[in-house]
Amino acid sequence: MAMAEFVLITGRTAKQGAALSRGKDSSEYRQATGFVQMSREDRECLGVEEGRRVRLRTVFGEAELELREGDVPPGMLFVPLGPAANTLIAADTQGTGMPDSKGLVVEVELI
């Protein structure tokens, strides 16, 4: 069980956008929002293959996602906007109305 700390970025993707109209119960939407992107360096360093399920944990919550290699800088993870991303972000908005959706510290655990 490997553990490592990363910076989490959430955001929109074209697939997630298109899948919205297929319905949130659709397999397209689940697939479009149910993965985490990690750099090749980090993936190799952790010794984990693509397609593995991993658990992401922040101080606010945790989510299980499929690991994919992606073009992100080492040390960063990207998760598309969606139900999984929401479990990881803070409800505290520090007086702005906007939760901290980008730049959170996140732990990755292999399962």
Partner: peptide, 9 residues
């Protein structure tokens, strides 16, 4: 529910 932090949702 799909886009808010869990506690708010």
């Amino acid at each position: 529910v799909a886009h808010f932090p869990r506690r708010a949702a």
